[in-house]
């Protein structure tokens, strides 16, 4: 039962990672821009919803506010910074968005201080459900999984069934061609960036009642999201989805069970220390393994 519970926790972490990684991979795949400040959008979503929830107590307002804040921040970032980086090399992109992280993190510290905010679980969602005899699970986390999965479905539909999605797919492989066909590429890029920002904001909003809302939270997920993108393959939303689930589950499971397993072979404290160490590097080892077998990622066909 503990196993199933942790599995669900893993899936929940996985869908959060997916919300981050899908935006990253789309923005990179289509626009050719690596955006380190993606984690900041996550943080902005979390902060906005935490503050609104504390002020109004309304779940709906907190959700909308969080999304709005992240979307707005995304729009501004795209308009003032990213737009100038399309034609530049990766180095400039990395540095400019690194600078954005410094600016946004420091602003958050100045505005809200270093103390983490804790968000009260919304009323009505703070209960538990019994999924199986002996398996009680928090409603909220189930909700997160449900929202994440529906967003994933929505994204697949958007990309595979709509005109925008067609442009997105075409734009990823034949950027010049799409431009030549008279598509307003700037607007397309702005829309995709905004979409990515909304997804990151949503991830932040959803995570805010579960984790501490604080400066630096964005970069933690960002780096995990990078791992996901590498595992799944750059530019592939499908890859991001499966990569995120695998990474989420592996990370959660290793943290939950590694020390226990090691205790069979080592003495208590040693096992705990080594277990914790191994658990914290688990996803990275997974990434290394994928790189060995499929350097381009699991869902990108090797050339």
């Amino acid at each position: 039962m503990l196993f199933l519970e942790q599995l669900l926790n893993g899936v929940q972490l996985g869908v959060t990672l997916f919300l981050m990684a899908s935006g990253l991979t789309l923005i990179f795949g289509i626009m050719g821009v690596i955006n380190l400040a993606h984690g900041s959008l996550y943080m902005i979503g979390a902060y906005a919803s935490a503050l609104i929830a504390a002020a109004t107590g309304s779940v709906a307002l907190a959700l909308c506010g969080g999304l709005l804040a992240a979307g707005l921040a995304g729009f501004l970032i795209e308009f003032f910074v990213i737009r100038r980086l399309y034609q530049r090399g990766h180095l400039d992109q990395v540095l400019a968005t690194f600078a954005l992280i410094l600016i946004i993190n420091q602003s958050a510290t100045m505005l809200f201080g270093r103390q983490p905010l804790f968000v009260k679980m919304p009323d009505g969602l703070n209960g538990f459900v019994t999924l199986l005899p002996g398996l009680v699970y928090p409603i909220y986390r189930l909700g997160v999984i449900a929202v994440g999965l529906s967003v994933a479905c929505g994204l697949f539909l958007l990309i595979n069934e709509t005109r925008v999605g067609m442009l997105v797919r075409a734009g990823a492989t034949h950027r010049e061609m799409v431009r030549a066909l008279g598509v307003n590429i700037n607007r397309l890029y702005a829309m995709i960036f905004a979409l990515g920002a909304l997804l990151a904001g949503l991830a932040g909003v959803l995570a805010s009642p579960i984790i501490a809302v604080q400066v630096g939270m964005g970069e933690q997920v960002l780096i995990l999201a990078f791992v996901v993108v590498v595992i799944g393959g750059v530019g592939s939303v499908r890859g991001a989805f499966f990569g995120a689930l695998v990474a989420g589950i592996v990370d959660t499971m290793m943290r939950a069970f590694m020390p226990g397993l090691l205790r069979h072979v080592l003495s208590g404290p040693d096992a705990d220390a080594l277990g914790a160490g191994l658990a914290s590097v688990g996803v990275y080892l997974l990434m290394a393994l994928v790189l060995l077998l499929r350097p381009k990622g699991l869902f990108v066909r090797p050339a």
């Binding site: 910074v81 100038r84 400039d92 540095l95 400019a96 690194f98 600078a99 954005l100 992280i101 410094l102 600016i103 993190n105 420091q106 602003s107 510290t109 100045m110």
Partner: peptide, 15 residues
């Protein structure tokens, strides 16, 4: 809050 001006400077430098 020295990282704020540092970030601005870096951003300006790159852009």
């Amino acid at each position: 809050n020295w990282q704020f001006p540092l970030g601005l400077l870096l951003l300006a430098l790159v852009l």
